[in-house]
Nucleic acid binder design. Structure first.
Lengths: 332, 332
DNA sequence: CGACAATTTGCAACCGGTTGCAAAAAATTC
DNA sequence: GAATTTTTTGCAACCGGTTGCAAATTGTCG
């Protein structure tokens, strides 16, 4: 059915090795045989079987891309950049949707069966041990959007969530808000924990400012809306740092629905700068994650680790910045 | 490095075939040897190499998932459902990001190299010939969100875009709009062409209604905004059928920015019902594509075609329905 | 033109599995 | 317990490639 090396070899009147060599970068083949082989291959429409060759070379050029954030709009951009970035380097993303389960064993097993060259765990909610499971299985791995650690066991690329929390606090302080709050995502998400830490840390130096915290059940529109609706009934703060943009939009919607104005009555600052944040009918002031840089570094790091397996685990954090839009009152 | 059949065989004191058979559904192995093999495998942490076995079985359980819609929020849902649906059947999605290029040759080549069992082309903008290229290469393929055809060459699953256009027209007519327009996506997108066809078809029976058409340069927020801004300066219609939800939000934003009200001054109806359409600060009236059904059928069809290669090309269309929200005036 | 070095080529073994076939072992029958 | 049938097992070839090695070819130089 499919055309193999042998077919091409026969047609070109050379050995199978000669054919293999014409298709291998930097192998020794004369001009003449290369020409013969290429002609025969073109005539037959031959293309080498990447999987068969992976058996001997030990490289599949397959990269496992594991995520559980299939509902966060930011991840459209993330998938776009990852797939493009990998393709540009001749790598193929094998997508794994984690959905509910958080046990790494199954994913590790599966990706081992497919002999992926490396894996990228793209998630801000999974614990570091998830990515570590890949490392333990001998699969080069990078945790993108993962938690910062001073002594990481695996490569981590992302933002400093503590610093981001601090940045949010400082932004609110600078605008003169006196009663502020953090509306986090799920309490067990590492990103929420760290952002809370930074937020409260910065405010500790401002005892005159009243600060409170609450958690939404998920990084989702509905969760943000529900939580903000609840907050509005119990006497809301003047400004909220929401743990995520989608959450922010949910909160925004609850505030507007209650007949209050943003930023007049209540200020909101999000985090991520998803594409929709700039839509004029949302116009969300937020803290931007440099997604492209994070993904570029992640790919670079996973490729580097494939080439140098015992490379020391690295943490690469990229700075965030505030994107001024319309949900926070202006600087005085 | 990695544990192979041979290692397990030696440890269990059996032949390699015996080990292979224990891991093959429905092969002949006695209780006793199976137990020995399983014990040895567990002790060594063995898991069979899926790629190596694919060499003889001819099945990789890899499915190419090809898309060029990495900026449409609807596709987050699409990716989520596809990856989950494939995983549930033990299949692995190999993601291909088409971005700019529309030449199928490269994708076909690449997916052939990886011996995918089948391919799913998920795009409403690619021409039918794209999916056909896969079929011609002997790869079972389904075109999801593709163009309807009475004599299809490949399986097509999606909605009847002509009917959707008609549905939009009828919805506007029923609400008493007298000057309506279609704000399409790129003129060459098959989905836009078909939706226009249905829209104008339905209005042909209503000569009293004034109808016009224009195209946005892409299915994007910015394109919708730009085009609507232009329209507002040249005397807009009373209501617009926008070829897509993101486009609708762009248009919506332009209208609001011009100080006009929706649906008071101008009505808008979109198509897709992306997740954000229900966000209260968008609250878009739209026509819902039954995404889950489309994807379920696509997977079923590609699996069916893998099992029965010469299956006749099928077209499966699912009905859309109008989702009433706040961007169209109420029924009289 | 011959000696020698550098390139190119084919052979054969291997990567990690699967599978048809015949022999061996176990189960069934009388 | 022997004869027959059924099940289990191992051998060896194969899937589609790669690669070390030695032989064959080509090129260089005096």
């Amino acid at each position: 059915m499919a055309i193999t090396l042998k077919d091409v070899a026969e047609r070109a009147g050379v050995s199978r090795s000669a054919v293999s060599r014409t298709f291998t970068e930097g192998a020794s083949v004369s001009r003449k045989t290369r020409a013969k082989v290429e002609k025969a291959a073109a005539e037959l429409g031959y293309s080498p079987n990447a999987l068969a060759s992976s058996l001997t070379t030990g490289r599949t050029k397959l990269i496992g891309l594991i995520s559980n954030n299939f509902h966060n709009p930011l991840f459209l951009e993330v998938f776009d950049l990852f797939t493009r970035g990998l393709q540009d380097r001749g790598l193929r993303p094998l997508l794994v949707n984690l959905s509910a389960e958080t046990d790494p064993k199954q994913s590790v097993r599966m990706l081992k069966q497919y002999s992926v060259d490396g894996a990228i765990v793209a998630s801000s909610t999974l614990s570091p041990s998830f990515a570590e499971a890949f490392k333990d299985a001998g699969i080069p791995v990078v945790h993108s959007f993962g938690r910062f650690s001073t002594s990481p066991n695996v490569h981590v690329v992302g933002i400093d969530n503590v610093a981001a929390g601090r940045m949010a606090a400082e932004t609110l302080i600078a605008r003169g808000y006196r009663r502020v709050a953090f509306l986090g995502g799920p309490e067990q998400a590492t990103s929420t924990q760290d952002r809370a830490l930074g937020f409260f840390g910065a405010l500790r130096e401002h005892p005159e400012i009243d600060v409170s915290i609450s958690y939404a059940s998920a990084y989702s529109f509905d969760a943000g809306r529900v939580e903000m609706t609840r907050l509005l009934m119990t006497g809301p703060a003047e400004a909220y740092f929401c743990g995520d943009d989608v959450l922010s939009v949910g909160a925004l919607s609850a505030v507007q629905e209650a007949g209050l104005s943003v930023p007049g009555d209540i200020g909101i600052i999000g985090l991520n700068d998803m594409d929709m944040a700039r839509w004029q009918n949302i116009n969300l002031t937020t803290i931007r994650q440099p997604v492209a840089e994070i993904i570029g570094a992640s790919i670079e790091l996973v490729v580097g680790t494939i080439e140098t397996p015992n490379r020391h685990p690295e943490t690469r954090l990229f700075p965030c910045r505030v994107i001024e839009r319309g949900t926070l009152r202006a600087l005085p």
